[in-house]
Nucleic acid binder design. Structure first.
Lengths: 257, 257
DNA sequence: CGGCAAGTTGAGCCAGGTCAACTCCGGTGG
DNA sequence: CCACCGGAGTTGACCTGGCTCAACTTGCCG
């Protein structure tokens, strides 16, 4: 058992019979020792989805515990008249636990790109989480991160204007280190998905990108890649600065109450 | 130790030297045995806030682990120009863990009414969570509930219209069993707070309540109490039904994709 | 080269924001 | 007891940011 930790320390990657996620140190499987890993292997199954496909209801019931291995998964809600919202993105390493959702109406999990994910055995997962503090901490902090990401998403949606939301999203992509390319940021989703995530129309998204580009704050290299030209201004816009965002000596408007 | 569980089974409430939360079976302290409880007591402190008061930065750093004992606590974000958003409400029994927030900008915790909360010792909390499966499950499901509440809040904010948001909020209050009064629902926050939670203006909130009342869906008894007159219609509105919501034979508009 | 999906641009309109006035409290002091 | 005050909520009138609809461009795949 401890031999495996020794291997890990020596940089030799552990193997996982099910998925390829062990390669990264910041995920659940990487925290497991050999016996835990093989137990989890035995009770887990890899599955994949093409873009636009949904994880079926029966899978969600039978396997309420998922780990994203690759791709972008989304949680979507649909209103009666067809309006749709993406409530959250799940990326590599995110753990989705649908067990305690109770009567609460959960949306559907839909792939935004080709996705592979691992269906975990709840009982084995629980046993590991009980006995392995490192794994527990990781799982806990992943869930925490989901909460706080969601909270700041709420803050974006509630009171920000269209451009501010887009600016904020670009920074979110950057922060989440999706693809840390120096001053380039990759937007991992299509415009229409972005619109549903930010509660806007695709047309408005488009106009906002153009707006930011005309102000010289960003440069749209391709639809999926943005170069940051004035990061501090982008931050100001994302935080709701009202005017003067393109001047260095920006005057903060301090409002009471 | 097991003597305490025996007492609990016999309906004799356990005592907690710090706060009064033990009375409810659905909270963290209620899952603890005598020794755990006294250990937690030793490392915890009760604190209180008046309405409008903020938990200071230094308290949040020194005590990143809080449990709400009574009242309504809110997580607020403020933009540079003063626009404010309430991202989430925390009510009795909610556990707030600020430890894994990393560099992510967290808002401030502000009391919406008189609040008492318990500052928990992280080390003792961790020890208990490790050894006590019941407590762990409860804490985990509380965090889960926060995530999914936040997700459906996002769904409300992103694409719903003003009336739909308000309808949805009324149902949320009902679901959360804040005050389960048959067909009456208590709105635990002021209109202005509600506005900040739903990303609207107080004026619009007011208009929406009136709108729902004029349609005969609800009856506003006091500003804080609503009587449900047509629950099914309220649900339809909250779920984004477009027209005919006031007729019983509502025709669902099924849209593809 | 056609066909389709994604994204962009333009023109018009309306839901909800904004501003201002007014009502309705509960508390406080003379 | 009443006059006064301030905060919360409501109502009305106006205005605008972003939605809507429709046309167009672009890129990808067979």
């Amino acid at each position: 058992l401890h031999g495996t930790e020794y291997q890990m320390a020596a940089g030799i990657p552990k193997t996982c019979a099910v998925c390829a996620m062990y390669a990264d140190d910041e995920n659940f499987c990487a925290k497991l020792d050999a016996s835990e890993l093989s137990a989890l292997n035995a009770g887990s199954h890899l599955a994949s989805l093409g873009r636009g496909e949904t994880i079926p209801e029966d899978v969600m019931n039978a396997w309420p515990l998922l780990a994203v291995e690759s791709g972008e998964l989304s949680l979507q809600y649909t209103l009666r008249d067809g309006r749709r919202t993406i409530a959250s993105f799940f990326l590599t390493g995110d753990i989705i636990d649908l067990r305690h959702t109770d009567e609460r109406r959960l949306g559907s999990l839909i792939a935004l790109s080709n996705v592979t994910f691992c269906k975990l055995s709840p009982t084995i997962f629980d046993r590991i989480v009980t006995s392995n503090p490192g794994a527990r901490t990781l799982v806990w902090s992943n869930l925490q991160a989901q909460v706080y990401r969601s909270f700041s998403h709420v803050a974006d949606l509630a009171k920000k204007k269209a451009v501010e939301k887009v600016a904020s999203f670009i920074l979110e992509c950057r922060n989440r280190h999706l693809h840390p390319l120096a001053d380039h940021v990759r937007i991992p989703v299509r415009r229409r998905d972005l619109a549903e995530y930010l509660g806007m129309q695709p047309e408005t998204i488009s106009r906002c990108f153009r707006d930011l580009e005309e102000r010289g704050v960003i440069e749209v290299k391709e639809t999926a890649v943005v170069r940051l030209r004035k990061l501090s201004d982008l931050r100001l816009i994302a935080n709701g600065a009202r005017e003067g965002y393109d001047t260095p000596g920006f005057k903060v408007l301090q409002m009471g109450a």
